[in-house]
Design a protein around this nucleic acid. Structure first.
Length: 578
RNA sequence: GCGCCCAUAGCUCAAUGGAUAGAGUACCGGCCUCCGAAGCCGGUGAUCGGGGUUCGAAUCCCUGUGGGCGUACCA
C-alpha cells in the first residue's frame, strides 16, 4: 500500500522518463538505515537522460512529489538525500495496513507467486546400511525448508525421498555380517551399527586389494555373489536384507518424525532396477545411448560434460541408471513441471549429465530440472571422516544436543520440559544448518550452536517467547484490530525499524524461491529478532499510555504472527515459555 | 592436466551492481526500583594480490595465490 503509493508518486513525477528507467518497483528499495526512510529511489540512471547531476535530479523529483501532494496518504514525507529520493511512511498507517492484511489473510496471500507450478523436491536420500550423520541433517533441513517455502509461495509441491536401499554397498554390509561373527546389534542406533559393518567391509576390501590383485578380486567376487543372491531372492540373504533394511527405514522414520519432516512420496533404489534397465534398452534401440569399452554410455561431449555411464560393462546398473528411471517416473507418473534435487555439490557433474541426458532422450522438461547444491558439513577440527569415526551418528547427536540444551538452560536458571527441550534442540540444529548460504560449508559446533547467547536458534525462540510474554501481560482488553488512535506517539526509530522489516517478508520469500537457498529467510528472522529485542528494550508496552500501548501491542502481535510463520517455514516450532 | 565452487573483522557468518561493508562471537566499558539481562547500548576490528568494465564493484570480466570438490564402470 505504501510502496504502491510511492511508486505512483514517483511515476507521476518522472513523467515520460519513467519508461526509460526500467522496472521502477525493482529500483525502489529500502535504504540501508531506517533514519533514511522506508524506501529509496536512486537517480543515477537518470543522469544521462536528464543530463544533470543525480543529487539535483533527486531534489527536483522530491520537490515535484511534495508539490503534487501526499497529505493524508500512507506517505508521510518525501525528501532527497544526496542522489536518492527517500520516502517515509506514516508509521501508524503502515502498521494499520499491515495488521489488517494479516487479519484478513491478504498478507500471506500476497506472498504467493503469480504462477503456481507443480514441483517435486527430492531430498534426504539416505542410504540404508550406512551411518546417518550430521552431514545428512543439512540436506534434510534445506530440503524441508524449500518444501515449506515453495508451498507458502503457492506451488503444488511433492516432497519426495529417495532411499538408497540397494546395490553393491548394501551387499558389502550384508557380506560382512554373514562372514564375520557379530554381536547382537544395539536397540538404539542400529543403522550406525550396520554402518560400522559396512565400513569394516570396505576396509577389509581395501586391505585385501593392497595385499594383491588375487585376494582383492576374490573378496569382490564374494560380495558380488551376495548382490546376485539379493537380486535373485535367495531366501537366507533376502531375509537378512529385509530385516536390516527395515531397521534402517524405521530409524529414518523416527528421525524425520522427531524433526517434523514429512514426505509425500518415497522412492526406493531397490524398485528402480528393472525400470532402469528398460530405459537403457529403450534408448540404446533409439540410438541415444551407445556402447563404449564394453559399457553403455550417454555421450555428452558436445554438451561439454563428458560421458555418462548408464550401464556397467558387467551388465549391472548404477546410480545414473536408476536416476533416469526415477526422472521418467517423476515426469510421466507425477506430472511435475519442475523437478528439484537437493544433493551435495560433489554431485554437480552427475546432475549436469543427468539433465543433459534427459534432454537427449526428448524430455522437454529437462530444462526445468534443477540441482540444488550445497556444501559439506565440517567439524571444528576439520572434515568429517567415517573412517576416523568423527562422523557423529544421528542418535548420538540428538542426545548430545539435548544434553547441551538442558545443561545450558539449567545454568541459566530455566527449567523446561522434555518437549520444550526438544523444540529448542531442533531449532538450534536447523537454524545452524540453515543460516549459512548453500555455497559455503557449514561448521558443526554443538557448543556454539546451542549457545543461548547470539546468532542461534535459541535466541530466536527466546525472542518469540518474550513477545508471547507481552501478550500475556498486556493483551487483555485491548482491541488491536481498531485503527491506531491519532497522536499515539507511535513511530520511534526502534518501532519503525521493526515495522519496516515486517513488511519486507514477502520479498524475502520470493528471493528464497529464486535462489533455492533458505539462508536468506534464516537471516531475515534473526535480523527481525534483533529489531524486536531493541524495540522490547526501548519501548515499554504494558506501561505505555493507552494509545501508544495500543500501537505497540499491535506491532508486537504482527511481529509474532510473521516471525512464527517464518520460523515455521524453516521447520522450527516456537515455544511459549523457555 | 581440465571443469565447478569458495576466499570479507582473531573466529563463525551477512550484504537483488547502489548511500558510511553489517551481525554474532571473543575482548573492553555501560544498563535490571521499569513487559523475561538467554537481553539492550557503546568501543576495538575486515573485502587475498594485480588488472579491467561501470556514474558506482565485496559482488561482473581477466589474471595470480591459497583451499574444497569432481574428472565413466562408487553413490
Amino acid at each position: 500500500m505504501f510502496k504502491e503509493a510511492a511508486l505512483a508518486a514517483l511515476r507521476q513525477a518522472l513523467g515520460e522518463d519513467a519508461d526509460a528507467v526500467g522496472d521502477l518497483a525493482a529500483q525502489l528499495t529500502p535504504p540501508p538505515k531506517i533514519e533514511m526512510g522506508d524506501l529509496a529511489f536512486p537517480c543515477f540512471p537518470l543522469a544521462k537522460i536528464r543530463r544533470a547531476a543525480p543529487p539535483k535530479i533527486a531534489a527536483e523529483l522530491a520537490a515535484a512529489i511534495a508539490e503534487a501532494g501526499t497529505a493524508g496518504g500512507p506517505i508521510a514525507e518525501v525528501k532527497a538525500l544526496g542522489p536518492y529520493v527517500n520516502f517515509f511512511a506514516d508509521p501508524a498507517a503502515m502498521l494499520d495496513g499491515l495488521h489488517m492484511s494479516l487479519a484478513d489473510g491478504s498478507f500471506f496471500e500476497g506472498c504467493k507467486s503469480d504462477t503456481s507450478t507443480r514441483v517435486m523436491i527430492e531430498f534426504s536420500q539416505p542410504n540404508t546400511h550406512k551411518v546417518f550423520h550430521v552431514g545428512h541433517l543439512r540436506n534434510v533441513a534445506v530440503g524441508d525448508a524449500l518444501v515449506r517455502v515453495f508451498r507458502a509461495r503457492g506451488h503444488d509441491v511433492v516432497a519426495a525421498n529417495y532411499y538408497g536401499d540397494f546395490g553393491i554397498d548394501v551387499a558389502k554390509c550384508l557380506w560382512w555380517l554373514n562372514s564375520h561373527a557379530q554381536e547382537e546389534p544395539p536397540t538404539d542406533g542400529r543403522t550406525a551399527w550396520l554402518g560400522k559393518a559396512y565400513t569394516a567391509a570396505t576396509l577389509h576390501v581395501a586391505a585385501a586389494e593392497a595385499a594383491g590383485k588375487e585376494q582383492g578380486d576374490a573378496i569382490k567376487a564374494e560380495i558380488r555373489a551376495v548382490l546376485t543372491a539379493m537380486e535373485e531372492g535367495e531366501p537366507e540373504i533376502t531375509a537378512l536384507y529385509q530385516k536390516t533394511r527395515q531397521w534402517c527405514l524405521d530409524e529414518f522414520a523416527g528421525i524425520y518424525d522427531w524433526l517434523d519432516v514429512r514426505f509425500d512420496h518415497e522412492f526406493f533404489e531397490s524398485q528402480l532396477e528393472e525400470a532402469g534397465n528398460k530405459v537403457v534398452d529403450d534408448y540404446v534401440a533409439k540410438g541415444v545411448f551407445v556402447e563404449s569399452q564394453g559399457a553403455i554410455i550417454s555421450d555428452l561431449e558436445e554438451d561439454g560434460c563428458g560421458v555418462a555411464l548408464v550401464r556397467k560393462s558387467d551388465g549391472s546398473s548404477l546410480y545414473m541408471t536408476w536416476d533416469l528411471a526415477l526422472a521418467r517416473a517423476k515426469f510421466d507418473e507425477f506430472d511435475v513441471q519442475t523437478s528439484m534435487y537437493v544433493v551435495g555439490s560433489e554431485q554437480t557433474l552427475h546432475f549436469k549429465q543427468l539433465f543433459a541426458t534427459l534432454g537427449k532422450m526428448g524430455y522437454a522438461r529437462a530444462k526445468d530440472c534443477r540441482h540444488v547444491s550445497y556444501e559439506l558439513v565440517m567439524l571444528p577440527e576439520g572434515k568429517m571422516s567415517s573412517r576416523k569415526g568423527t562422523a557423529i551418528p544421528f542418535h548420538l547427536l540428538r542426545t548430545h544436543v539435548l544434553d547441551a540444551i538442558r545443561a545450558k538452560m539449567a545454568a541459566a536458571g530455566s527449567e523446561v520440559d522434555d518437549e520444550a527441550a526438544s523444540k529448542i534442540a531442533i531449532a538450534c540444529l536447523k537454524y545452524g544448518m540453515l543460516h549459512v548460504g548453500n555455497t559455503r560449508s557449514v561448521i558443526f559446533d554443538i557448543d556454539e550452536w546451542t549457545n543461548p547467547e547470539g546468532d542461534t536458534g535459541a535466541y530466536l525462540l527466546y525472542s518469540l517467547a518474550r513477545i508471547a510474554g507481552i501478550q500475556r501481560k498486556a493483551g487483555d482488553g485491548v482491541d488491536v484490530a481498531s485503527p491506531v488512535p491519532a497522536d499515539s506517539g507511535f513511530g520511534g526509530e526502534a518501532e519503525r525499524a521493526l515495522l519496516t522489516h515486517l513488511t519486507a517478508y514477502p520479498s524475502v520469500l520470493a528471493r528464497v524461491e529464486r535462489t533455492c537457498d533458505p539462508s536468506g529467510l534464516a537471516g531475515y528472522v534473526f535480523e527481525g529478532a534483533k529489531r524486536f529485542s531493541r524495540f522490547y528494550q526501548e519501548c515499554p508496552v504494558v506501561k505505555a499510555e493507552p494509545a501508544l500501548k495500543h500501537a505497540r501491542l499491535k506491532l508486537a502481535a504482527s511481529a509474532q504472527r510473521i516471525f512464527t510463520e517464518a520460523l515455521g517455514l524453516l521447520g522450527i516450532d516456537a515455544v511459549e515459555v523457555m
